[in-house]
Amino acid sequence: MTPVSIKPDLRRIGASAFTEVLDTLLSLPVIVRESANGRPVAPDEISSSVLLTGQRLSGSVHLRLPQAFVAYAVRRLAGLDDDAENTKELQDDAAGELANMVAGRVAAKLAADGYPCKLHTPTTSRSASLPDQDQNGPAHGRTDLICEGHWLSLEIQCGYADP
């Protein structure tokens, strides 16, 4: 009989990683939503992604964040009083750094489940899309949170080398 390996629960990992990052960095409580039903599309959203690669896994972590939330995070983190300094460039940088931190937590949890992996440099774009969820493609887990009144989304995708 061929042993079947138990794959990580990506939704649980994502919810835990995202919550930890927001709590540690910004001391902000979050409400984890069971689904994305009712999620409004903010007029300006920022997507940031980090690739994960390891011997037994290749995957990615994607965040989708309203621009107003990222601007708020920049104000808190950098201590900026002047909105003129809260530039698009700085918000993109902050969104990338948030994705980097969430991906770091995700990677630590995947490693604990037997799938160690390395983080790549984050990329950021001004688009409101998360990767498509192909039922026949890599495993995926989506998490939607509400934080400070903003809907934030996280999608983890993982392709495994073992069956």
């Binding site: 540690t24 980097n100 770091g104």
Partner: peptide, 26 residues
């Protein structure tokens, strides 16, 4: 570092890093 993997921590220890902080940090 955002990467709390054991491999990277062992590497930095060999290079005489006094301490490390995992991002995000308090």
């Amino acid at each position: 570092t955002a990467d709390s993997g054991l491999q990277s921590l062992a590497t930095v220890a060999r290079l005489g890093v006094r301490d490390y902080v995992t991002k995000p940090f308090r």
